[in-house]
Design a binder for these strands. Structure first.
Lengths: 342, 342
DNA sequence: TTGAAAGCGCTAACAT
DNA sequence: ATGTTAGCGCTTTCAA
């Protein structure tokens, strides 16, 4: 037992046997006599022997490491996804190595190179906002390493994907408002160059379409931060045909809208109903509590890992899949009004 | 170029030279002729050669991996810490492998074993709530692997540490309330078996002590969730000597308290001042915006990595350090009142 | 200027 | 039942 951690050779030397015998004994190989097995295992236990993953990786050509690239961790949704990734990877005997792109293309490329250099068995990516070139992903594929996109997917690259069904979630939320009696619903929308902004607006439109309610384009407002909300919403409340419902692209905006509405003397949900789109525990601290569309990030993380491991361990050539994670409308107080007008 | 990624041997074979020559050429060894260097580098470039970290690790005995164990990622504070860890590690040429203990002792022990098995160069840990035995950490030390605790530290093990100065932050917050005129401040406190709960209460007490204000023990209330807040705070507001300030152990509780206060017809900050302790972007969405103590998790992550890498690359035997991350009182609207009573 | 050989820790095929 | 050998990809003497 020299410097660092105990090796198989240390044990072999101590017991006066060969390293390969130790290896076999540790693996319960039938060739090895019971007495040797016992001796080896006891000493391994006593010396706290742990197989060297690095040596195993080199030997087997498999690192048992999954590489993950996310735009940023400090973001409720991504942290739930990462949590799901870590949990399932761990339970499946994989380790997780992860990188933040910090929304930068250069850093995303660097991260890909890092992970490739680390010989990870597979890579999970959610695109950075700054990424408009995709050749680094082709490089991954050319190296024969499975790739799964999640949430912010890359349409230009054919591979496994996991996405949230934003549009369906938005549609369900808006239908809920309509069915609760709203006829003049404002959508506080996100930037349309982002998929989530676009999808959620589509859901808003489709809900109106499917329930045969006309859409007033003046009701679609670009506003997705508390600051913008404080500027924009007071104006909306002064309209002759005051909105009777709000569907916000995220909970932060919805919560800010709730504050503004209450300050103006109107009541939620009695006068105006409100639904957001999940971004943490915000929906519980507002008063009234905020109805919101839940995105199941944790489950998304697990699905991404599942797709990857399936490809790694089962059929590497099976056709690519796109898994859609269902959203779920969680109705709380802000959208339930007893004195329904209809 | 056989199956997986390109190796030094592939390049050597193609060029009809030996692997060791390729290695030297790639490293700009002076022995190697310029022409060979050029040829090697061109082909390496063309074939997208990336050194195999696994082989390098085995060879050098250094994995360039930092292992991280956190209770859970889905937690604003920890996600900021992790972000800081990843950023500095990345910039310093290290990779990050991470594990969630999910607040479970068993899983923390398993994670330690995993990281040991992966031969990480060092380990960063924030204790799980379920951990009351610490022998797995001694094991790390016995293997000669540097260990740094952050935030939820382990007092039983002598090693490098990074902590937040919770008490000072709490003290500053409460002093701010007192200096703003409050004379009857309620502390909505966390569980006292957790360090943060204890420290923040200590800060509350010290502020009173240092400003010569007596403490009414009835003003220290165990309450650290929105649910509890809705039960507890209405009662407090009915007291004959109604509180004129609240200091909450976290922002969720503070935000919930704000809602309750406003619903009771009282105003923040005109009637009651309010300060929380950061847990995300909550402080921006409340109305009025919430004053809060910022914990600088990102910086804490960077400090933890810095301590680790210093020990790894500089002096492994230098005395252990405890770095204290200063908190910072961020005053927003909830604690600034013009019509100050004093 | 280049190459051969050994070794990092481990496994597995092939002796003994 | 146990040992020997080779090799995973790379670096590093040492030899040519």
């Amino acid at each position: 037992m020299n410097k660092g951690q105990v090796t198989i050779t240390d044990i072999a030397r101590e017991l006066g046997i060969s390293p390969s015998t130790v290896s076999k004994a540790l693996h319960g190989h039938p060739d090895i006599s019971v007495s040797t097995k016992v001796a080896v295992r006891d000493l391994a236990e006593k010396w706290n022997y742990k197989p060297d993953q690095i040596a195993l990786s080199l030997q087997s050509g498999l690192s048992k490491i999954i590489g993950v690239i996310v735009p940023e961790i400090v973001h409720y949704f991504f942290s739930t996804v990462i949590s799901g990734i870590e949990d399932l990877a761990h339970d499946s005997g994989y380790h997780v190595m992860f990188c933040q792109s910090n929304e930068s293309y250069e850093r995303e490329v660097k991260s890909v190179n890092t992970l490739l250099s680390c010989r990870v068995d597979g890579i999970l990516v959610s695109l950075s906002k700054g990424t408009h070139e995709f050749d680094h992903f082709n490089k991954i594929r050319r190296n024969g390493i499975p790739l799964v996109f999640f949430d912010r997917i890359c349409c230009e690259i054919e591979t496994d994907r996991v996405v949230v069904d934003d549009e369906a979630g938005a549609c369900e939320a808006v239908k809920h408002l309509i069915n609760s009696g709203c006829r003049n619903i404002v959508h506080l929308s996100g930037p349309q160059y982002l998929q989530i902004g676009k999808n959620r607006k589509e859901g808003y439109l489709r809900a109106h379409d499917e329930l045969n309610l006309p859409v007033d384009n003046n009701n679609i407002i670009r506003c997705d931060t508390p600051e913008e909300t404080r500027l924009v919403v007071p104006e909306l409340l002064k309209r002759a045909n005051r909105p009777d419902g709000f569907f916000a692209v995220n909970d932060l905006t919805a919560a800010a809208a709730m504050s503004v509405i209450k300050e103006s003397g109107l009541r939620v949900p009695e006068d105006i109903l409100l639904v957001g789109f999940t971004s943490g525990m915000i929906s519980d601290i507002t008063s009234p509590t905020l109805s919101s569309v839940e995105q199941h990030g944790y489950q998304m993380g697990r699905e991404a890992v599942r797709l990857l491991i399936d490809r790694l361990e089962k059929n590497r050539e099976s056709p690519y899949q796109t898994v859609v994670i269902k959203t779920e409308l969680v109705v709380k107080e802000s959208s339930v009004c007893c004195n329904n007008k209809y």
